[in-house]
Nucleic acid binder design. Structure first.
Lengths: 127, 127, 127, 127
DNA sequence: GTGGTCTAGACCACT
DNA sequence: GTGGTCTAGACCACT
């Protein structure tokens, strides 16, 4: 999981994004356990409290649930909702970019070009 | 100009983004003066200090410059630089969305669909 | 016996509450033996240590007592004490609800209405 | 606001309960500001982080909203929801008490007596 | 070992 | 001064 400490997006939300994406991608499946607070904290080089805040966010969303002394688990119904949630986030992000372009008077055609360039530049093999 | 007080992006950067987009769009042209601190502060419902910080940012970037006692003006070369800056911001935004999609295992095709949907949904007439 | 793992009331106290209520209701009578640690642990899906703690609590209260190598038994005077203890717990619970209502400016009449509604909604046949 | 440090209910939830009740009671009205993190922390003798967690809970509920640098305010629509929320909490509490009574084989009549006793004992003048 | 609460204290953005 | 994030570290309940 990638954390950008210079981003204005709080670390705990970046972590929540990462877990959400991983569940959406099927890396963690319904009923399966997630990395423990402490192990993930070591993994992303962050204080356990910050990971806790990230997980808390996802528990409230209904994506995961916690069992004291046992661990954190992907909710049976939660995985599907992670997919749609991820889609919404992506759409929201694209719309923000597009709105910025609109404000700068940029035509759709140019924005499509930029988008295709972004797809190419972030390609990590097969897509 | 749209300010989202709940966004984690600092308000002064949101204001700078807005000015930059307006310059790129030709709303403020090279040599023209920009709104005063106080008028813009009232406009976006924010403390003048915050607008000051936004203008500082843009002066540092070279997009605008200050004439003591006269106000702030758009740099001659500023308009072009605003264009490229806006492009970079947009590209950055798209790449963020794409990275989220990749993390969730979403194929390019689906992301293109979402992008086109976003273009359509944010259309405000002719584009 | 109902255990709510999401409640902030420790599980061992929830188990003790359950046993106490069962003794008060005459399900376990004075002199009779109680379920073994392991059987109750399996029953409520909990670690035997947690059941142990619940029994410890009840022994301390004087509701039950242990015969080494034989098991746990309901105290002769225990049944009566369970009755009064259950009454205290219930009273305490009602008072908590009433205090919340008072804090929200709710008149007694409305609280009585809510109480009667609760009695009705939780009715499981004859009461 | 009363905090019981011996309760198993976390302090931050006790604080949230208190604020919710105060809004329901009309002590804080829609649009009005709430005590600041620091002042409330001093008031209830608790760490500001704990108050923060309580307010965070209420922000998520939609009862209040926060403005960075300005303070916390009661949501226009939130006040009404506080009333119903308070009612639900009270009902939930009563039902818990009643369920305990049922488990102990207590008849409705006796529970009504206990309830009336509780109303009397917690009376603080006119109700 | 695992989740959850709490304190103490630093630092940031905004008013 | 006001809300918000983060670290470091203690302590609790449960496995």
């Amino acid at each position: 999981m990638q954390i950008d400490p210079r981003s204005h997006r709080p670390i705990y939300l970046q972590i929540a994004d990462g877990i959400r994406a991983a569940v959406a991608a099927g890396i963690y499946r319904p009923g399966e356990s997630l990395p423990s607070l402490r192990s993930l904290a070591i993994d992303v080089q962050v204080n356990p409290n910050t990971v806790q805040k990230a997980y808390d966010e996802l528990v409230r969303e209904g994506l995961i649930f916690a069992r004291r002394g046992k661990g954190l688990f992907v909710d049976e119904q939660g995985a599907a909702s992670a997919q749609t949630h991820a889609q919404n986030v992506i759409r929201q992000t694209f719309e923000n970019g597009i709105r910025t372009g609109r404000a700068a008077g940029m035509p759709n055609k140019q924005m499509r070009n930029i988008f295709e360039g972004s797809l190419r530049d972030t390609a990590d093999g097969e897509n």
